[in-house]
Amino acid sequence: MSKQDRDTEQAIRRLEDVSPSVRLRAALGVGTAPDPRFVGKLVERCAVEPEFYVRDMLTWALARHPSSVTLPALLHEVRSERAQARSQALHTLSKIGDRQAWPAITRALLSDADDEVARSAWRAAVVLVPEGEEPGLATVLATQLGRGERETQLSLSRALIALGEVIVPPLRAATTDLDPLVRRHAMATERLLRDPDAGFEFAIEEAKRIVVLGRTSQG
Rank of each mutant, 00 (worst) to 15 (best):
S21E: 14
S21V: 06
R23D: 14
L24T: 05
R25A: 15
A26L: 14
L28K: 14
G29Y: 10
G31P: 13
G31Q: 10
G31W: 13
T32Y: 15
A33Q: 15
A33K: 15
P34E: 15
P36I: 10
R37P: 04
F38I: 03
V39I: 15
G40Y: 07
G40H: 14
L42K: 09
V43I: 12
E44N: 12
E44P: 04
R45M: 09
A47L: 13
V48C: 08
E49F: 08
P50Y: 09
Y53G: 00
Y53C: 02
V54R: 06
R55T: 03
L58M: 02
T59D: 01
T59R: 07
W60N: 01
L62G: 00
L62C: 05
R64T: 04
P66K: 02
S67R: 05
S67G: 00
S67M: 02
T70L: 05
T70H: 04
T70F: 03
P72W: 05
A73V: 02
L74P: 05
L75R: 06
L75C: 07
E77A: 15
R79M: 07
R79K: 12
Q84T: 08
R86K: 15
R86A: 03
S87V: 04
Q88N: 07
Q88A: 03
Q88W: 12
H91R: 11
L93N: 03
K95C: 05
R99F: 01
R99C: 04
I105N: 08
T106L: 13
A108L: 14
L109P: 11
S111E: 15
S111R: 14
S111G: 09
S111C: 11
D112C: 12
A113I: 14
D114V: 14
E116Y: 13
E116A: 08
V117E: 02
A118N: 04
A118S: 13
R119W: 00
W122F: 09
W122I: 02
W122P: 00
W122C: 01
R123D: 02
A124M: 04
A125T: 05
V126G: 01
V127E: 13
P130N: 12
E131F: 05
E134P: 02
P135H: 06
G136A: 13
L137S: 04
L137P: 02
L137V: 07
A138I: 00
T139M: 09
A142G: 07
A142V: 01
A142M: 04
A142F: 03
Q144C: 13
G146Q: 07
G146T: 02
